[in-house]
Simulated scan of single mutants.
Amino acid sequence: MGKLTGKTAVVTGASSGIGAAVAAYLAEEGANVVLAARREDKLEEVLSKIDGNSIAVVTDMAKKSDVDALAERAVETFGQIDIYVNNAGAVLGSRLQDGKTDEWDQMIDVNIKGVLYGINSALPGMLERSSGHVVNVASVSGQEVNKVGAVYSATKFAVRALSMSLEKELARTGVRVTNISPGQVDTEIASKPSDRKRLEPGDIARAVVYAVTQPDYVNVNEITVRPV
């Protein structure tokens, strides 16, 4: 029996990369898993490889109605949401002088508002039960800034700020909060070349599993995972 048997986890951005790995690792620990992303074909492909109780729900995290419907489907199917992994993210043009305001809007909508919508949809049930875990996947770009990533970094700084504030807000409620900041990960959205081996999606998934399988009185607030 896995450490998460009987628990239900929602994983956003689960159609590939980190999200797909997180969903698979949580399922291996016995969790019921609800996979969410926009690409139905990719979601179904990931779902077919997961053992255990799992469903896929096509979801655009930039749309509050979609995010609310995702939570409703999870509760209808499995009874409640115990773990919510805000992993969906957009990495687009971030240099301010390029003026790509449409791409900035998309990153803000997914990376910030999507996280807020996810928290809002799952938190009431967690508070009612005095139990639950919100995991926000940020980035080392939310700790350090370079000259070509202003807007993306700003969104990931925001995710870290939300995580830090939420942890304080929920102190002694029984609901835990973890912020995970990956370094360069070998996924389909990785762009710039690297002179060292990138992390694998499974490396981040193991960090998620570590955080959510701690005893109820242990709140792992911050994990940064970098390649050597």
Rank of each mutant, 00 (worst) to 15 (best):
T178P: 00
G17Y: 05
Y217K: 13
A158G: 12
T77D: 04
E29N: 11
M1Y: 01
E72M: 10
V135P: 11
D41R: 01
T224P: 00
G174E: 10
Y84A: 14
I119A: 10
A171F: 10
Q143R: 15
A14F: 01
K100T: 05
G13A: 02
S54Q: 06
Y210M: 06
A74T: 03
D186F: 02
V85H: 04
V57W: 03
R176L: 06
E169I: 01
G13T: 03
V137L: 15
A171R: 10
V85S: 02
N179M: 09
K113A: 07
A20T: 09
G79M: 03
S163W: 09
V218E: 11
V220E: 04
G174W: 08
V228L: 09
N179C: 11
T178W: 00
G89Y: 08
D186L: 11
K100R: 14
D82K: 11
E222S: 12
D82R: 07
V134A: 02
D51V: 02
E29L: 07
P215Y: 10
G174F: 07
V145G: 14
G132M: 12
D66N: 06
S15G: 05
S141P: 01
S15F: 06
I204M: 12
K7E: 01
S16L: 01
R129L: 01
T77E: 14
D109L: 07
Q143G: 04
V148P: 12
T101H: 13
L123G: 03
V75Y: 04
L116A: 07
S94H: 09
G17S: 11
A27C: 03
A37M: 00
R198N: 12
K147I: 13
V34Q: 02
G118M: 06
A21L: 09
R95V: 09
I83P: 04
T224M: 12
A62S: 15
V10D: 05
R206D: 08
A211K: 08
R160D: 09
I83Y: 03
I189V: 14
A161W: 07
